[in-house]
């Protein structure tokens, strides 16, 4: 990369696509600017005032011209709109196939990263090439924004909710992580590196770093520690719904609605259990955990609850198997 390149490195499948769209916008933008500049200069010179008494004839306007220069730019903009929207939906909708799930917690002023297998890092993210990575973002305090310029992606990290986006890295290397939403004194130090590795080196890195418990195991410990297990009895009818096979499946609620049990739903049900009551159960049975569990712990609980579900598709088994492999230690 030259010192004055106008493109940052391209290291994900989306980077090229965003650059292509950016290129299109640049061409249109430069073309339009050139056109306006040309006419301004041309008219200014051609029709410069030659004598102080000049009285040019009035031209009041032209409806066909007005329509032309409203409609043509509008049509060009429709292309930008459609192209940009399509790409946006694609980048913010994680694929259903086998994703590698990574959990990022922002905290003034560091990024804490957890992998399902239990590795944890600060300000360092390791991902393999050729596999979609789904990032779940949580914040312990204020707004942050997880920005990966080499992937042309960012997403705000909003306290009180989970945000997700995904990418598929293509080119091994080390790239910047920035915080892009102002978060206080050391906002500019809330930076890190994402290391993209080929799948083999990634596996090596993964096993070298293994040793602790997986996220699901940590979650299970919390599940016991907070006494959840006494009501949410697995595979039996307890005072609260069994959590086996809940994650990713529809849940019927007391008020007749049906929701999919995703991360946001589980999070809400832990922090504010009465928000959505499962049909057939009573409200006010479960205590409110708002303010009791930190964001990392919450994520571990969610991963644990996820692990209680049968893998919906064979493809997802890989993650579960990887988690299971290490559990006997």
């Amino acid at each position: 990369m030259g010192a004055l390149s106008i493109f940052p490195p391209r290291a994900s499948t989306t980077a090229g696509e965003v650059d292509a769209l950016y290129g299109f916008l640049l061409v249109v933008g430069i073309g339009m600017t050139a056109l306006i500049f040309f006419f301004v200069f041309f008219f200014a010179i051609k029709y410069r005032r030659r004598s102080p008494d000049e009285r040019p004839k009035a031209i009041h306007g032209s409806i066909p011209l007005e329509i032309t220069w409203s409609v043509i730019p509008f049509l060009v903009m429709l292309v930008m709109f459609a192209w940009g929207t399509k790409l946006y939906f694609q980048n913010y909708t994680p694929p259903r196939r086998d994703t590698l799930d990574i959990y990022v917690t922002g905290k003034q002023w560091m990024w804490k990263i957890q992998y399902p297998d239990g590795q944890r890092e600060i300000n360092e993210l390791h991902v393999p090439t050729g596999r979609p990575v789904k990032v779940t973002l949580a914040s312990e305090d204020v707004l942050h924004s997880f920005f990966l310029p080499a992937f042309r992606l960012k997403h705000d990290v909003v306290p009180g909710s989970y945000q997700t986006f995904w990418f598929e890295a293509t080119k091994p290397g080390r790239y910047h992580i920035f915080c892009a939403e102002y978060c206080g004194t050391n906002h500019s130090q809330m930076i890190g590196w994402v290391t993209v590795m080929d799948p083999v080196s990634y596996e090596t890195w993964l096993s070298a770093g293994a040793g602790g418990s997986s996220m699901a195991e940590l979650g299970q410990k919390l599940f016991e520690q907070y006494g959840c297990v006494s009501c949410h009895v697995l595979d039996q009818q307890g005072r609260c719904p069994s959590l086996r096979n809940v994650f990713g499946n529809p849940v019927k609620l007391e008020d007749g609605r049906t929701v999919i049990a995703d991360e946001a739903y589980i999070r809400e049900s832990i922090l504010n259990p009465n928000a959505k009551i499962v049909s057939g159960y009573k409200r006010d049975v479960m205590p409110v955990f708002q303010g009791q569990i930190n964001e990392e712990g919450l994520l571990q609980l969610i991963v644990y609850i996820k692990s209680l579900s049968n893998p919906p598709k064979p493809a997802a088994a890989k993650t579960a198997a990887a988690a299971g492999k290490r559990s006997p230690q």
Binding site: E17, V18, L21, Y22, L25, V28, G29, M32, T33, M77, M80, F81, W83, G84, T85, K86, L87, Y88, N91, Y92, S145, F147, P149, R152, L153, K154, H155, A180, E181
Partner: peptide
């Protein structure tokens, strides 16, 4: 104004917003 169009284009905005 024209760079405003870059920011209205959502996929590009994701990259350049807050920069």
């Amino acid at each position: 104004g024209l760079t405003g169009l870059f920011l209205a284009t959502m996929a590009v905005d994701v990259h350049v917003t807050d920069t």
